[in-house]
Each structure stands twice: as structure tokens, then as C-alpha cells.
Amino acid sequence: MTSTYAVLSEGLEKRFGQTRAVTGLDLAVPEGTVRGVLGPNGAGKTTAVRLLTTLLRPDAGSARVAGHDLVREAAAVRRAIGVTGQSTSVDGDLTGRQNLRLFARLHRVPGPDRRVGELLERMGLLEAADRAASTYSGGMLRRLDLAASLVRRPAVLFLDEPTTGLDPASRNDIWDAVRELKRQGTTVLLTTQYLEEADQLADDITLVDRGRAALTGTPAELKALVGAFAEAVVADPDALPRAAAVLDQLTGGKPSFDHERGAVGAISRRPGLTLPALVRELDAAGVPLLDASLRAPTLDEVFLRLTRNTDDTGNTDDTAGIGGTGDLKEAAA
């Protein structure tokens, strides 16, 4: 295990009775980066966070967080990390300032008032600092909760779906805070259900499925892995089946329909598809076109494609040649 990784786990496992929530999780998160962890509901993301933050004890495997062994040095791990969970940890009866002072005193932070003032200003909460937290909006509560996890300047910050339920403006505030933390050298492990969030913030993304890391790569690498997205928008809804047949033949992917727009699209499983070839084949099939496009897939499309195709070994159809590492960087090396 090397100190260049802020989080490094090998074969981490956790069972609850007959349920295997985490099944051999391997993670390697370099210091000073943001790692997005994505997966369908029940994939084991939150259990993995609870393991890595010492809230649960692993049944097998090993891990080091901020250079400390997860089991043998659990207290040192806790001193080195910050955690923002899915539910807020602040006291609604206390003001924002009082909440942060409480956390500062619990963590024995030197110069607590100065640190509290810094965090209130960074999170845009100075004007509301002396109001009861119960009067805060959802976005303000999440920012206060994030500030509480930063009181002692953690080396590694775990964010478990930190923007769930927030409006776009509040979500952008959290995103800005995460970007600033990265600039200051903090390592962030972020679980999220928002694919755009991972695309915006993460240096690398790990897709977790059935309790293990199925694949890791940058957003661009994951998008390139699944091929281009071909789409046709038709002038006559009756032509959608013909357009779908053309896309099926050209891409080898399963067509998906957007009946409201009169569109059909598919992710190409075959290299070399061009837009002129797509338009030519649609025209030959008598499809009246309003528009046709060939573009990089969104991260949402990548996520659905790769998690849908994951088999029981944790590999996907697209990663058969990766040698079982699930890491695009290792595959390219």
C-alpha cells in the first residue's frame, strides 16, 4: 500500500446475514482528487462509505485511509476524515454559529471562533449565522452540514449523496465548495445519484454494481468505451419503427424511443459509424427526417449501458479485454 493514495482498499467485504452488501471492493483514490462512486440503488455505495469511515467493520479484505489501516488504526482514520451523510447532522435548535462551535469544541480545534468564522464565510452563511438552523432552507442546511465536516480540515472528505433533494442553485453552491476543496488539496470521495454531478466534479468515476467496483475511468474514458450515440428525429411518427430498424442494423445497440420528440436513438457497438452513413441509410429506408445526429453519449447513457451489462463476475461485455482489473488506465498501460 502506497502513501500516494488517500483511499486504498483491497477485497473489502461486508455481509448482513445472507446478504452480501459489499463483495470484494477494490478502490485506489489518489491524493488530492475527486472520485465519483456511482451505482444503482442497492449496489453497496453507502455500505462502502460506512466501511471506509469506520462506522462498520469489514468481514474481509483490507483498506488504508489517509495512510492509516482501517481496522488497526480506526481512531487515526476518524481523526483524518470528514463525513457528510445523506441526512443532516446539525442541531436545529442551535444557530449555525453554535453548531459549528460545538463541532470545533468536540474536535478540540485551536482558535475555534476563527475557524467557525472562516467556514461560515466560505459557505455563504454569515448573514444567517445567528439564526436557528431550523429556519434554514434545505440548501443552507446542507452547506452547514458540509461546514461541520470541514471544521478540523480533513485530509479525506466523504460525501454520501450530498445534494439529494436540493434545487439547482443550492446544488451549484455545493459543487463550488467541492471544487474549492480540491484546489486546497483535499481528497473527496463522492457518492451520487446525479450523473451530471459526477461528470462536473469527478477526476475519475468508479461504477459499483453488486457490491464491487465494476469499472473505473475518467468521464471521457467511460464515454469513449461505449461508443457514439446515434439519433434520428422523424417527421412522421409512423416512421419510427423503420428508423429503429436502421439504427439497430447500423449500431448493433438496442434502440430507445422518445415518442414526445418523435425520436429514436441507440448507442453504437460498432466503430466507424459516420453521420453521412447514418443519414444515407435512413433516407434509403424512406424515413422522413427532421434531424439526425451522432454524438458522444451522456454519462447517464454510459451508466445505464455498463451497469445493465454487468455480469456476475463484475465484468461487463465491454471490458472483456481489461484482464479483470476494471481500470481503464491499467488497461491502457
Rank of each mutant, 00 (worst) to 15 (best):
129 A>P: 01
102 L>P: 08
256 S>I: 12
87 S>N: 00
24 G>V: 06
218 T>G: 01
112 P>H: 09
225 L>E: 01
40 P>H: 05
319 T>S: 13
8 L>W: 13
17 G>R: 11
141 L>W: 02
159 L>F: 07
190 L>T: 02
178 V>Y: 03
45 K>I: 01
153 R>H: 12
95 T>S: 15
144 L>Q: 11
261 R>E: 04
181 L>M: 11
297 P>M: 04
269 R>T: 15
271 P>N: 03
116 V>Q: 07
168 P>R: 02
196 E>F: 00
114 R>T: 13
240 L>M: 10
74 A>G: 07
330 E>Q: 15
214 A>Y: 02
232 A>R: 00
110 P>C: 07
247 L>S: 10
90 V>K: 00
16 F>D: 11
239 A>Y: 02
216 T>P: 02
1 M>N: 10
257 F>Q: 04
287 V>A: 07
215 L>M: 00
219 P>W: 08
10 E>K: 13
113 D>A: 14
284 A>T: 07
333 A>K: 06
152 R>L: 03
115 R>P: 09
196 E>A: 08
82 G>W: 04
226 V>A: 04
93 D>T: 14
180 E>W: 05
244 A>V: 05
225 L>D: 01
217 G>W: 00
287 V>M: 05
274 T>K: 04
101 R>A: 09
150 L>H: 03
112 P>Q: 07
117 G>W: 09
316 T>C: 05
172 N>V: 13
214 A>P: 00
275 L>S: 07
324 G>T: 12
59 D>Y: 06
107 H>D: 06
11 G>N: 14
101 R>C: 04
142 R>K: 10
184 Q>I: 04
117 G>S: 14
156 V>M: 05
260 E>A: 15
158 F>H: 05
98 Q>D: 15
284 A>Q: 09
179 R>V: 12
213 A>V: 03
89 S>K: 01
288 P>W: 03
143 R>L: 14
213 A>P: 00
312 D>G: 13
176 D>H: 14
272 G>I: 04
319 T>N: 02
164 T>G: 10
317 D>G: 12
3 S>E: 11
171 R>M: 11
77 V>L: 09
162 P>K: 08
199 D>C: 04
63 A>K: 06
304 L>M: 12
3 S>W: 00
328 L>N: 06
304 L>R: 07
248 D>L: 14
302 V>R: 02
263 A>H: 02
118 E>I: 08
311 D>N: 15
167 D>L: 08
185 G>V: 10
32 G>T: 09
90 V>Q: 12
174 I>E: 01
333 A>S: 10
52 L>Y: 03
221 E>M: 12
34 V>K: 13
156 V>N: 08
145 D>M: 06
72 R>E: 15
